[in-house]
Simulated assay, not measured.
Amino acid sequence: MMPPVESLVKYEEAEKTKSKKSNAAADPKAKSVQTEDILNAILPPREWTEGGELWVQYVSTQMPTRSDAIRLAERLDQRLKLRGAREHGICTIREEIYAQCFDELIRQVTIDCPERGLLFLRLRDEARMRIAAYQSLYESSLAFAVRKAVTGEEQRNELLHQTKNLTNECEELRHALHDQTERAETIDSKEEEKWQQMKIKHHQEIKSLKDTYKAQTKHLQELLAPPPGFVK
Rank of each mutant, 00 (worst) to 15 (best):
N23G: 03
Y58Q: 13
G117Y: 07
I131S: 03
K21T: 11
I106E: 03
R79I: 03
Q216D: 08
A145F: 07
L166C: 02
A143F: 10
Q57W: 00
S7M: 04
M2C: 08
T35V: 14
K201S: 04
L166W: 01
V5L: 10
L160N: 11
E169V: 00
I111H: 11
Q196H: 14
P226K: 07
F230W: 03
C91V: 05
P44A: 13
Y138L: 12
I206T: 15
L173D: 05
E222M: 14
Q100P: 01
R156E: 07
S22R: 14
K148D: 09
Q100V: 04
Y138W: 06
E74D: 09
E87H: 08
T65C: 05
E50W: 02
A99S: 11
E154Q: 13
L82T: 13
A225S: 08
E47K: 11
N23D: 15
H178R: 13
E115I: 03
D211Y: 00
E222P: 10
E12H: 05
R122G: 02
F102Y: 10
A41Q: 10
R71V: 11
W195S: 12
R79Q: 09
N157S: 07
T167N: 15
D125S: 09
Y134T: 05
K218P: 03
A132Q: 12
V109G: 06
N23H: 06
L105R: 04
V150L: 06
L142S: 12
P28V: 09
T17G: 03
Y58D: 11
T110K: 01
D211F: 00
E193Q: 13
V146P: 01
R107L: 00
Q155D: 14
R94Y: 05
L43H: 11
D211T: 03
D27C: 10
R122H: 10
M63C: 06
K232T: 01
L166V: 02
L223G: 10
K148N: 01
E222W: 07
N40K: 07
A14M: 09
V56D: 01
L123G: 14
K10W: 10
I42F: 01
P4C: 02
A184T: 11
T163K: 14
S60A: 03
C113D: 15
L121D: 07
R83S: 12
H88F: 14
H161T: 10
I42A: 05
K190D: 10
S208Y: 02
L224R: 07
M63A: 12
D37G: 02
E154D: 12
A184V: 14
E15F: 07
I42Y: 00
L173P: 06
I106D: 00
A26W: 02
E104I: 01
P228V: 05
I97E: 09
E6C: 14
P44N: 15
L209G: 00
E205K: 02
E104G: 02
I42D: 00
A225V: 13
C91G: 09
A215Y: 03
E193G: 06
S19K: 15
L160V: 12
A225P: 04
K210P: 00
P227A: 11
E154L: 15
A176C: 08
V9C: 01
I70C: 06
R116N: 14
E169F: 01
H203A: 06
